[in-house]
Nucleic acid binder design. Structure first.
Length: 309
RNA sequence: CGCGGGGUAGAGCAGUCUGGCAGCUCGACGGGCUCAUAACCCGUAGGUCGUUGGUUCAAAUCCUUCCCCCGCAA
């Protein structure tokens, strides 16, 4: 199969690597352009670009796909199918339906649930116990195309977006290879998604990093883990901004008001949440500092005020 | 040169403004107490104060060179 690959972050790179290792012909990799990522003016290439270059694959980085920007590439490489994994741009129909087998997408959720750009984060933040990967045929809607196959994976209470992304990449890559075989052999059976069960997972915004301590410990834990590693849940203790990581449910204490710091010392940081539930924060990162165990930070920095915001 | 914080014992920090014995909370190690413990008590070890040069009787502290880490913003 002649494949045109489109994707950007690490999960996409994983899938691309699997396609290459399986011996498929990848005619080109389309990815988002380099963009400034860190302090200073440096810009960094996407993970897909790095991998493609190291494997000698042609890389295209169009700013926009509108106005037939991809037409020359499509005519030149004549792909049998387009594989899209977390590309980050909407594909116009002229591109979607160009190849013989159309375009297929690896989406990191059990469709029709969590359609959209942040399915992994939203599944964790929604306190889901399981999620998965779905391979589907793309149509003009956002993740609304007919599904081919899917695979489930459990979400553990320690999973973060980072760890869950890895799990999904691990099952997603072989799932796509499987799908390609089905398509090539003509055995692919696509099923319509049931829109009645659809939910939408919008992009994560920086403003969502604030924590509402009146929520339950379980909800806050889910939020912290869903926002890890980016943008990370934030709170303020003694006027210092802290990013929060590695939450763990820590029982109940009826008297404690939500937002009260119950413990901050060598045992770590424990905060009261809604309904008297307690949440232990395993790791913190003060502004300007590295991520560290909460116990370490509060050891050398006694609290002035036992309140968290 | 986008804005900003930081580098001091194994960890986390104070001390820097205003130069004057290298400190704190932990950890480690040794001992003690306790029915017992993540508790408590006594003690020990552990430092090139990121790096370069300078000012000074004296520099973690003031001036200077470079390196490294991180937050914001994207």
């Amino acid at each position: 199969m002649r494949i045109l690959f489109m994707g950007t972050p690490d999960i996409a790179a994983h899938v691309l690597e699997a396609i290459l290792d399986a011996g498929h012909e990848v005619t080109a990799a389309v990815t988002k352009p380099d963009k400034p990522r860190d302090r200073g003016k440096k810009s960094a290439p996407s993970e897909v670009k790095v991998l493609a270059l190291s494997r000698g694959i042609r890389v295209e980085e169009p700013e926009t796909l509108k106005n037939g920007a991809l037409t020359p590439l499509l005519e030149e490489t004549n792909p049998d199918v387009i594989v899209v994994v977390a590309y980050g741009k909407i594909l116009p129909e002229s591109v979607l339906y160009y190849p013989k087998y159309g375009s297929i997408n690896v989406h990191a959720s059990l469709l029709p649930r969590y359609r959209g750009s942040a399915p992994i984060q939203r599944a964790i933040m929604g306190c889901e116990k399981e999620t998965g990967v779905t391979v589907m045929k793309m149509d003009k809607g956002v993740d609304t195309g007919d599904a081919l196959i899917s695979a489930k994976v459990a979400i553990s209470p320690e999973d973060t977006t980072e760890t869950l992304t890895k799990k999904l990449a691990v099952i997603g890559a072989p799932l796509l290879l499987n799908a390609l075989e089905l398509i090539e052999s003509g055995e692919a059976k696509f099923r319509k998604q049931n829109d009645a069960y659809a939910t939408y997972a919008p992009m994560i915004r920086k403003e969502e990093s604030a924590v509402d301590w009146s929520c339950s410990a379980e909800e806050i834990s889910a939020r912290i883990r869903g926002l890890d590693p980016w943008p990370a849940a934030e709170a303020e203790v003694d006027g210092i901004r802290l990013k929060l990581f590695r939450p763990r449910l820590s029982g109940f204490c009826a008297e404690a008001q939500p937002g009260t710091v119950v413990t901050a010392g060598k045992k770590g940081l424990i905060v009261a949440c809604g309904g008297g539930s307690l949440l232990e924060i395993g790791e913190v990162q003060p502004a300007g500092k590295k991520r560290m165990p909460a116990a370490a930070y509060f050891n050398g920095k006694p609290l002035k005020e036992n309140r968290i915001r």
